[in-house]
Nucleic acid binder design. Structure first.
Lengths: 144, 144
DNA sequence: ATTCTAAACGCGAATTATTTGCAAATAATT
DNA sequence: AATTATTTGCAAATAATTCGCGTTTAGAAT
């Protein structure tokens, strides 16, 4: 299966063993349409893996930049594949709805920041999320 | 005391009672040089308050926009006063060091996003944090 | 193919972070 | 001073994440 071979290589290239759980976790993210929490990954796995295994995998994959961590303000971390085209999230503070946002052009900002920073040598990632109210929540609130 | 009077008004204006714990919590943030976790607030309080009280206060103050929540990737929320001049954070993935970043000009981006969004009515806040490696961690790593 | 070994796993328990229910206390209003 | 809706403290619950450790296993070396 070619998809698994690609993931297998990806893991090996980062110095990890290509274990069934890690391959399965990557598979779950490949299918996902939105950032997933550890619990959602656990639930979505075809053959169950221990929660410690999943947490460890998420952490490692995030450290190597295969996944990226997203803060949706839900008191727990979410992750998504890092190789998606550059985008950010618009999150409804009332209902949690997520919309994808493109074209924020952060590379330029990052290099400018780095040039003027006293203490930092490198920027590896950034998180840019917008929190607001979605239209249906806004409508619902007007009625009250 | 004039400073407390200002905070007292701020709280009342948001519909809250100006209780000693909330005034003390605002006092702690006023002195702080960096975003604080709930635990750090608890430790910094002159007269101790219960953790439930502190968590409840942080949540309310964040909802009313007096505090804002920051994600430093430490598995717990941090907060800072919302009325600081617009800035963001540069966080070292290796040691946690924080540097303040100015001039990211997000208002323009926000209004553009809102104009092109299908589902969102309003943007209330954003989080923009940069994660990288600080110079001293970079140096330490080279030696290894 | 078999052996070897560091890395990864599963399990259970520990930690850490945050929330909740409820009775008592209290800030603001009258 | 009396009233009342908020807020507090306490203790316990829940949620999120991590850790220790004995066992298994992927990949390298024979």
């Amino acid at each position: 299966m070619t998809k698994n071979d690609a993931n297998r290589q990806l893991l090996r290239k980062s110095g990890y063993k290509a274990t069934p759980s890690r391959l399965a976790i990557l598979g779950v993210f490949k299918k996902a349409k939105k950032p997933l929490s550890a619990q959602e990954v656990i639930n979505a796995l075809p053959r169950s893996a221990d929660q410690a295994t999943v947490y460890r995998a998420l952490k490692s994959l995030n450290e190597k930049g295969i996944l990226r961590q997203i803060d949706l303000r839900h008191n727990h971390a979410h992750y998504e594949l890092a190789d998606l085209t550059e985008h950010h999230h618009l999150i409804c503070l009332a209902c949690g709805k997520i919309e994808i946002v493109h074209h924020c052009n952060m590379e330029e900002t990052e290099s400018r920041i780095l040039r003027s920073s006293k203490h930092f040598a490198e920027i590896k990632q950034h998180a840019l999320e917008f929190y607001g109210i979605c239209k249906s929540c806004a409508a619902r609130r007007k009625k009250l």
